[in-house]
Design a protein around this nucleic acid. Structure first.
Ligand SMILES: [Mn+2]
Ligand SMILES: [Mn+2]
Ligand SMILES: [Zn+2]
Ligand SMILES: [Zn+2]
Lengths: 123, 123
DNA sequence: TTTATAATTGCAAATCATTTGCAATTATAT
DNA sequence: ATATAATTGCAAATGATTTGCAATTATAAA
């Protein structure tokens, strides 16, 4: 039983084939993937189930998400980090996060940083 | 002729009533607004025209945009800055930006930082 | 100050990501 | 093995945004 499967079980959710396959895809491709991209790798699973499971896994903090251009991307990575996206070809690269924000009048602060530019293939 | 109208004219676009009204609303309310929110203030203008004009004004860098929770918000502000959004009530507050990013393999880098938390009304 | 023309608008319908309802299927605890 | 609640798949709804097209309008030339 993988680490992620254990978290699922401990939270009282079933370990199902769709869930295992989605996690395998995220593990294999490393880069952040959208629901639709995951669906292309797993056409046997209903897109709706992919959406539902991505939401569940995100709630359980088994995976993480980032919204880029009105589309949500998911990635499996214990350590929080950021991404830079090429505005022409969509290539993404990961970047470390060492930010800490403290803001008056707000608590429970989380942050999302999206960098965008031209990769050297496209430049 | 306002500064924004001048930019429109110089770029070869017409100064129309919808465009003037949209800019007035953004000027009046200061906080970032979505197309739908602007439409609520300007029900006489077709929502589609609001979308088209927001896109045009953004391309011309007369206004700026930020995507929060899969919805695009627009604001009229010369100086780039960021926003913190209350995850419960949606209240937003502006924050200064003094970030500069330099990343290997990428040029033309721009960034978007979205902070989210609980405002002290909701906490 | 008309007039011509291209840009812009409004309305309907399309599109795209995501969600919801519901009956059929399946993982797990007994 | 069986019961049962969780999960799935399919269809249809939703919400944001875009597109096509005919009617309207801002602008600049006559
Ligand atoms: Mn960070
Ligand atoms: Mn910044
Ligand atoms: Zn690129
Ligand atoms: Zn709040």
């Amino acid at each position: 039983m993988t680490n992620q499967e254990l978290k699922l079980k401990q939270a009282g959710f079933k370990i199902t084939t769709p869930r295992q396959l989605i996690l395998e895809v995220l593990k294999k491709y490393k880069t952040p993937l959208s629901a639709k991209q995951i669906y292309q790798y797993l056409p046997q699973i209903d897109l709706v189930s992919i959406y539902r499971n991505l939401k569940l896994l995100t709630n359980l903090k088994i995976i993480f998400q980032e919204i880029i251009n009105n589309e949500t991307f998911y990635y499996l990575d214990k350590k929080i980090h950021h991404h830079i996206v090429c505005q022409r070809c969509g290539r993404t690269e990961c970047l470390p996060c060492n930010h800490k924000y403290k803001i008056k009048n707000f608590t429970n602060i989380s942050h999302q940083l999206i960098l965008s530019g031209l990769c050297n293939h496209c430049h």
